[in-house]
Amino acid sequence: MRARAERFLPFALLLPAVAFLALLIVIPMIQALILAVIAEGGGFTLEHFERMAGDVNFSDAWRNTLLLLILIVPLQIVLALVMALLINSRFRGHGFFLYVYAIPLAISDLAAGILWLAVFTERGYLNSSLQGAGLIQQPILFLSFENLPGILTAIVVAESWRATAIVLLILIAGLQLIPRDFFEAADVFGAGRFRRTIHVVLPLLRPSLQSALIIRTIFAFQTFAVVFALAGRNMPVLAGEAYVWYAANRNEHLAAAYAVLLLGLTIVATVVYLRVLGLREAEVAR
């Protein structure tokens, strides 16, 4: 009786999470998959994907999404790594910095976008500061559709501010999992701070770096609210197109096609990370 109860206990404990995932992730995902390949009148079709690929904004959205990914992810990983190593060195007051770094985590991405809009807009904080300091005469149109580098910079800054903290937290947790003895052994055997980081800390941090990269890349594919708040339709991205086709153009099939494309990209990126950064079998303790 007791043994039976114990056999079922793990499943019982997993059930709420499984139910949650099924209800909010798996079912919508299957629905999206079906929507993307079903013709208006029923039956299998690829016409939605063809229409998506032929859309005027498609190539821009595709380019912008990848551009943001390439700019934001490495920047955030490097920033977060430096911040994490700094905090992990336990200097006086490191706890304060951790809290300050983590504040943006509590803000929704749309709110973060609007916040940075207030900085970058024509009469925003940045322009008034620069004018006040006498550095410029006329306000700079950072977010004009003619100023792609400006828009891009604003989005990269806002996204980095908003989402670096999650990477930071993952890396700090990873650093704290590394036994102190490894740091000390590196010190004793002659590695300076820099080489200790390169030869000991980073390799041991690989599992956490992998998680952080996967999470960040998935989020980067989904970048949407911040872009929308700062650039509106001036800067189409894949996730934004899915939203526009669903909400504005009322074409759920095309929106689903975009969503499926994003899902595919996410899976490819994740598999690549797992392959490239995964631990060799021999390194894993028995």
């Binding site: 003895d181 000390e184 052994a185 390799p203 041991l204």
Partner: peptide, 30 residues
Amino acid sequence: RHRGIAMVFQSYAVFPHMTVEDNIGFGLRM
């Protein structure tokens, strides 16, 4: 690292991401 010491730790602190060869040679490489 400037004291002229070598140490054996209670937990050994043998680096899990290096082979035995790389572990033994670690101090010399550094």
